[in-house]
């Protein structure tokens, strides 16, 4: 099947077949990262702008490396050093970027929906690298790639996602993707951090106790406590959070013995995850980062060829 999406705005718009194709493509691209010469000419002459209006290490670096390994020219702009600080609107910034004829704009923005807003206003492809508390599609895809690598298949997996679900775009994208691929999802977190009605998103069960959520789980995904999006009213203290919703050696024993532990990074060690676990045998956190480059290569490649496919 052919990939028919000009933009990657979220997992919500992708079918199971789309996700399958992205993961298969990523798996093929992954081999490039272990070569001596880590570069193929696939996207020669394409220009990719990584516009990050919000802090990022992994995602920005990962998109930049992905573009470069495919021979595209990746250029980065960040919010704090761009004209945004002088008061330029997002639309004006985007139109000015567009005047320099990029093929793809990868955007991270603190406001949910910004990539969608741009997709309606510029001619090139838009890839969402995280928009507010909405979606973070490339993160969910690299998570699924890592699960598939370790577990063989996504279908039927019991995946526990623990933490601040309300503010987590990673959780939202993962719930869409995992549901589409036939996994069962258990959510756990303080009541103030679980949005009402989240069960309606798919095969989702909400637990108030971390231990119930991770019991016999195949995958335990810990979310970062997002101190930047947090108000004090949601959380009495980090110590209390760590005690009730932190993953440690003891409660990890409740999960299946071959369960894998994931975290999208950056980690708050000692808060949502103890160092024993994050550095322990079951952690696949750096596999996630490694797969991130391959998944982003796949996304850049697939949206680049879409004009020819849509013209058919």
């Amino acid at each position: 099947m052919a990939f028919r999406h000009k933009h990657i705005l979220g997992i919500e718009h992708l079918s199971a077949e789309d996700i399958q194709l992205i993961l298969d493509t990523a798996e093929s691209f992954k081999e490039i990262n272990s070569r001596d010469i880590k570069k193929v000419p696939t996207l020669r002459g394409k220009t990719i702008i990584n516009a990050f209006f919000e802090a990022s290490t992994r995602t920005r670096l990962s998109f930049e490396i992905a573009g470069k390994r495919l021979s595209a020219d990746s250029v980065n702009i960040s919010g704090s050093t761009s004209s945004v600080v002088k008061g330029e609107t997002l639309e004006d910034t985007a139109k000015n970027i567009e005047a320099m004829a990029p093929d793809i704009i990868v955007i991270r923005h603190g406001h949910s929906g910004s990539p969608h807003y741009l997709a309606e206003r510029v001619g090139c492809s838009i890839i969402n690298a995280g928009d507010g508390a909405h979606e973070h599609p490339s993160q969910a895809l690299l998570d699924l790639m890592t699960m598939r690598e370790h577990k063989g298949s996504i279908k039927g997996l019991e995946v526990a996602i623990v933490g601040d679900i309300t503010h987590s775009r990673v959780a939202r994208s993962n719930i869409y993707a995992l549901t589409r691929m036939g996994a069962r999802i258990r959510l756990a977190g303080p009541g103030t951090m679980i949005p009402a009605g989240i069960e309606k998103m798919g095969d989702v069960t909400v637990f108030n106790d971390l231990r119930d959520a991770i019991k016999d789980a195949d995958v335990v995904m810990m979310l970062r406590i997002q101190l930047e999006r947090q108000s004090k009213t949601l959380l009495p203290s980090l110590r209390e959070y760590a005690r009730y919703f932190g993953l440690n050696q003891e409660n990890l024993k409740l999960a299946r013995p071959d369960a894998i532990v994931m975290h999208p990074g950056p980690m708050n060690r000692g808060v949502e995850i103890s160092s024993y676990v994050s550095d322990g045998e079951q952690n696949v956190i750096l596999d996630q980062v490694e797969n991130g480059v391959a998944v982003r290569m796949a996304l850049l490649y697939l949206v680049s060829g879409v004009d020819a496919i849509l013209a058919e």
Partner: peptide, 16 residues
């Protein structure tokens, strides 16, 4: 990954 017709034929599946 080494094809010269991405613009004409689009993104074909990439094998290993």
């Amino acid at each position: 990954m080494y094809r010269d017709d991405l613009a004409a034929r689009g993104s074909l599946p990439v094998g290993k």
